[in-house]
Design a binder for these strands. Sequence first.
DNA 1: GGGCTCACATACGGCAGCGTATGCGAGGGC
DNA 2: GCCCTCGCATACGCTGCCGTATGTGAGCCC
Lengths: 214, 214
Amino acid sequence: MGLYGRPMRAAARSRDDSKRETREALVQAGIAEFAEHGLDTPSLDAICARAGYTRGAFYVHFRDRDAFLVAVMERVLGRFFDSIIATGDAAHDLERTVGRFADALASGRRGASPLPLPGAVQLHRLLEACARSPQIRRRFGSLMQEAIARVGRATAAGQAARTVRGDVDPVQVGLLLVAVAFGGIALLETGIPFDPGKASRTALRLVARRPARA
Amino acid sequence: MGLYGRPMRAAARSRDDSKRETREALVQAGIAEFAEHGLDTPSLDAICARAGYTRGAFYVHFRDRDAFLVAVMERVLGRFFDSIIATGDAAHDLERTVGRFADALASGRRGASPLPLPGAVQLHRLLEACARSPQIRRRFGSLMQEAIARVGRATAAGQAARTVRGDVDPVQVGLLLVAVAFGGIALLETGIPFDPGKASRTALRLVARRPARA
DNA sequence: GGGCTCACATACGGCAGCGTATGCGAGGGC
DNA sequence: GCCCTCGCATACGCTGCCGTATGTGAGCCC
């Protein structure tokens, strides 16, 4: 063991590797802390401790707390949008895909999730919290619109077209599905036993020309 | 003017009236501050200043910051649930009612809202933030379920029955609508030009047996 | 391998916010 | 009308957190 109980990194590590590893550990710790307690509460000490470092290391990698926030959200939102886009583009069977996406969102256990996402509740908390930062919002607003538009287009494309009414704006449907996922998460946070996956599938079934079991 | 620029209360006010007025001002200031900055950031000094008092007055009315939080959320959630329930119970024309409700949620201007609610963004922020308090969640979880169940039942009752597929669980529809409202608000916060009212109406139109403009 | 560099830890000053103790002036019972 | 009560303001100590300055040991160039 190294100083202060932190495991000694494998001997003879390159400086660049070590540095990237440290930064990565700090970002991961930030994601975890912010997801649990929001963006305001966690102290730099708590974050650094969780990563196994001290503030000395922190200020090597980030100018201040705000810069760190941006870095963390860049990571989280990047993965989130990638997942949405991938889900949308691959939507051959929209109902199944959306259901899986919503289930993934709802899954709190990261390992069990087919998406590289933190749990839904944590993600929602991060998004909600970061919405208060105009800087972050400016940075990611267009990205989010793009992602949702793709989901909407996927709704109108491929096999999906068969299951959706012709007279409904696909972008609106995409928005609707994302909104359901988000809203369901909000309900989950307030203690309502809401199932985003089930609700999304219900929504899609409603969108379909004929009820699924008719 | 009284000391510190605060307008002198009308002379000869009863102590009880004065006390209730002070408490009310603090709660209102708390709602405004928490809605703008979340539950963590606003300082007691800022809240008291906004209400036109100091922390000395605060500690006359509330044991500590947490007790104040509970009092504020009790007010906000109480009105919120009342509105949901009233909307649900009065839902003769569900599409119009839900649309109005969603519009009210989306309206940031309190005066323009037909509901006694703060703006949607603020409300969502409060709900999201309070979700981190197990105490508050325990206190209001059942209330929220009840409110949503009522909306769902209203969906199946009255004229609403005419416009909803018979094979859809009304409670699920209620959950769906509330989820759409919440999710739309979340989207709004991230900068997406989402219209909860329009989306809710779209969702309801999808639920209806025939498209509205068919 | 000697010395420089750099990643990180430790130490320090400062500030903001909370909760308490105390002061003060205006209601309200007698 | 006197004095007690009480609602509110002021003053103070304390803690937690941030950002900086400084120390130190391990990589890296020659």
